Amino acid sequence: MRDPTIFAETAAEAWAPVSGWRAKARGAARAARIRLEALRQGPATTPFVRCLYAHAVFSDTVPTFRAFLRAAKQEGEFVDTATLRTIIADGKPSDGRFFHLSFDDGFASVYEDGGPVMEDERVPYTMFVATDLIDADPDTLNRYFAHMPAYRARVRTLDWPQAKAAAEGIGEIGCHTRTHARLSKISGDGARLADEIAGARAIIEGHVGQTCDSFAWPYGTASDIDDTGRAAIAAAGFTSNFSAVRGAVRPGATDVMNIPRHQLEFHWPLHELMVWARGFREA
């Protein structure tokens, strides 16, 4: 059993390596496709609105993270969630090129290692936090990471002073439920659903001292949420809701309560990050 007091402090320590010949073959094929796409793509020149998300920015990925932000800023402007909502609600084809950047789960590395870079580069960002993981004891984190096979070790989460400091800078603290619950599995329990959604929002606002009106549902696929969960999110007062499904954001057409996002992680090579930032597989 893993030592519950030991946390990964670098990407090399955190992410599980690919194992097994089938997985390695799939990974090699994927890398080849992305390399070909990188050669095919050129810098973005047409209007777009694109939401990107990751989980962490570890110390060993800071150089790539900074290089990515600078490269992306050559092709588009990073906007905060309020601006994104305005662009979507405007209903007119965007005449600009816009990125929105967010991070799920509330890992401390985003604030500690990524925060100074985003402040330097003036890139607004949102951290979607699961409130019971903030300041969590080792046993709570132990249970959480037991269901996260992508990680080879536990990753430290924010504390509330860090969350408050991020929100007082250019960050935003959004909601990712209390316990990282799969909403489609608890939609029959109205009390728990309300606690995971409205309860989490109240906890965030109490600690951060600012309105929390952005939500991202855990796991992020269409099967991880249902109509009951969506209704509870709206009833709790959230005005935007983010998925983890790749797709284009289209002003006037995209549902602000079902905003698509492209995943990327900053231990990936820069050319791969830019392939996703340019909307690979967006259609």
Results as ranks from 00 to 15, higher is better:
2 R>M: 13
4 P>F: 14
15 W>D: 01
15 W>M: 02
22 R>Y: 12
30 R>P: 06
33 R>Q: 13
36 L>S: 11
36 L>D: 10
39 L>W: 06
42 G>K: 12
44 A>E: 00
45 T>G: 09
51 C>P: 13
53 Y>G: 04
53 Y>C: 12
59 S>T: 13
64 T>S: 01
69 L>P: 09
75 E>I: 01
77 E>T: 06
79 V>L: 07
89 A>V: 11
91 G>S: 09
93 P>E: 04
94 S>H: 07
95 D>V: 03
96 G>I: 03
96 G>M: 05
98 F>Y: 12
98 F>E: 01
99 F>L: 01
102 S>G: 11
104 D>A: 09
104 D>C: 07
105 D>Y: 12
106 G>V: 09
107 F>M: 10
109 S>W: 07
114 G>M: 08
115 G>I: 01
115 G>M: 06
115 G>K: 12
118 M>N: 02
118 M>T: 00
122 R>Q: 11
124 P>V: 04
130 A>Q: 01
131 T>H: 06
131 T>S: 05
132 D>G: 04
138 P>Q: 05
139 D>T: 03
140 T>P: 07
148 M>T: 00
151 Y>R: 00
154 R>W: 05
154 R>Y: 06
158 L>T: 00
160 W>P: 02
163 A>L: 08
166 A>E: 01
167 A>W: 10
168 E>R: 12
171 G>M: 09
181 A>S: 03
183 L>F: 06
185 K>C: 01
187 S>L: 08
189 D>G: 05
196 E>F: 09
196 E>P: 09
197 I>Y: 10
201 R>E: 13
202 A>N: 10
205 E>P: 07
212 C>E: 12
213 D>G: 14
213 D>W: 11
216 A>H: 07
220 G>K: 08
221 T>C: 04
223 S>G: 01
231 A>H: 14
232 A>E: 11
232 A>F: 11
233 I>S: 13
234 A>R: 15
236 A>L: 03
237 G>Y: 12
239 T>R: 15
243 S>G: 02
243 S>A: 14
244 A>W: 09
245 V>T: 09
245 V>R: 15
246 R>Y: 05
249 V>S: 04
249 V>L: 06
255 D>W: 11
261 R>L: 09
264 L>I: 14
265 E>Y: 10
269 P>K: 11
271 H>T: 02
272 E>W: 05
272 E>T: 06
274 M>R: 01
275 V>D: 03
276 W>N: 00
279 G>M: 00
